[in-house]
């Protein structure tokens, strides 16, 4: 049975926003790693991790059904990641000479990265099985 709940209604917008960040993070980390990885290996590696998490979250939220646990995991990892990297980028700024998606809690992206994982988790909670919505 196909479960469309996570991509229906408001979920339609959520998946779209996740797709935008998947694209932005992937493109940014690809350029960073491809051009001057040695400049900031930690920051650029975390940038790539962020990209992978956004891709996973986008696909899992769009898929729903069996992929829901993956969506939970991706959104949780994203919440942990944005606050860990956000804090690191402030207290250990030497290792973050160039901005990433999660630097300073997503400052370069209007702080959307700091809010998005909680919208994702809230949406997964609202569309959980046995819940009318």
């Amino acid at each position: 049975m196909s479960d469309a709940s996570t991509r229906s209604g408001p979920g339609r917008i959520l998946v779209a926003v996740y797709a935008v960040f998947a694209l932005a993070a992937t493109a940014r980390s690809s350029v960073q790693i491809g051009t001057d990885f040695d400049n900031a290996p930690l920051a650029y590696s975390l940038s790539a991790v962020a990209a992978a998490i956004y891709i996973l979250a986008t696909v899992a939220l769009a898929r729903g059904g069996w992929a829901r646990p993956l969506a939970w995991a991706a959104c949780t990892a994203e919440a942990v990641g944005v606050f860990t990297v956000g804090t690191l980028s402030i207290v250990a700024s030497d290792h973050f000479p160039d901005a990433t998606v999660w630097s300073v809690y997503g400052q370069g992206y209007g702080y959307v990265p700091a809010v998005l994982p909680f919208l994702g988790l809230a949406w997964l909670w609202r569309t959980r099985e046995g819940h009318a919505g």
């Binding site: 408001p10 979920g11 917008i13 998946v15």
Partner: peptide
């Protein structure tokens, strides 16, 4: 394409 295939206001939001 992603928005038009959702037949509610949320598709327009996309």
């Amino acid at each position: 394409a992603w928005g038009a295939s959702e037949k509610t206001r949320w598709g327009t939001g996309v």
